[in-house]
């Protein structure tokens, strides 16, 4: 069978589907000051699955931590229109499970184009393999 670390190089999704891969990628992102990218990505997935009772508090928490501060790494990588959309949803309590979908896609593209290829060339990954 293919060893997990070779699968990680196939696609970002293969990497994010493996606990050990996530751990290594997260360590790399933290070194680069981009750890929030990954946490935000998982928070968006978790939000979709969250219960209706938790959604209002959770939407606010995600908004405050990653989007409100325009200097934050996640906030800088999301389009202004997407940020206003989320802000509107939070303010009006229009809490659709998919309200972070677009932002998640944008962060995912950033990882795919930028931090994920860097990770595959990084010492952390090469040492692991």
């Amino acid at each position: 069978p293919t060893p997990p670390y070779l699968k990680w190089a196939e696609s970002l999704h293969s990497l994010l589907d493996d606990q050990e891969g996530i751990q290594l990628f997260r360590g790399f992102l933290r070194q680069e000051g981009c750890g929030d990218q990954l946490d935000f990505w998982f928070a968006c997935s978790g939000f979709r699955k969250s219960s209706q009772e938790k959604r209002p508090k959770l939407a606010k928490a995600i908004y405050r931590k990653y989007i409100q501060d325009s200097n934050g790494i996640v906030s800088r990588q999301i389009k202004p229109a997407t940020k206003s959309f989320i802000r509107d949803c939070v303010v009006r309590l229009h809490l659709d499970p998919a309200m972070f979908q677009q932002a998640q896609t944008e962060i995912q593209s950033t990882m795919e184009e930028n931090t994920y290829p860097l990770f595959l060339k990084s010492d952390s990954y090469l040492e692991y393999t």
């Binding site: 493996d18 606990q19 998982f42 928070a43 997935s45 978790g46 939000f47 938790k54 959770l58 928490a61």
Partner: peptide
């Protein structure tokens, strides 16, 4: 604030793949 952080952490963990 603490409980908000806990909620976020719980949400992030819930989306991670389970151990295989």
């Amino acid at each position: 604030i603490d409980s908000e952080d806990d909620l976020l952490q719980e949400c992030i963990s819930s989306a991670m793949p389970k151990k295989k």
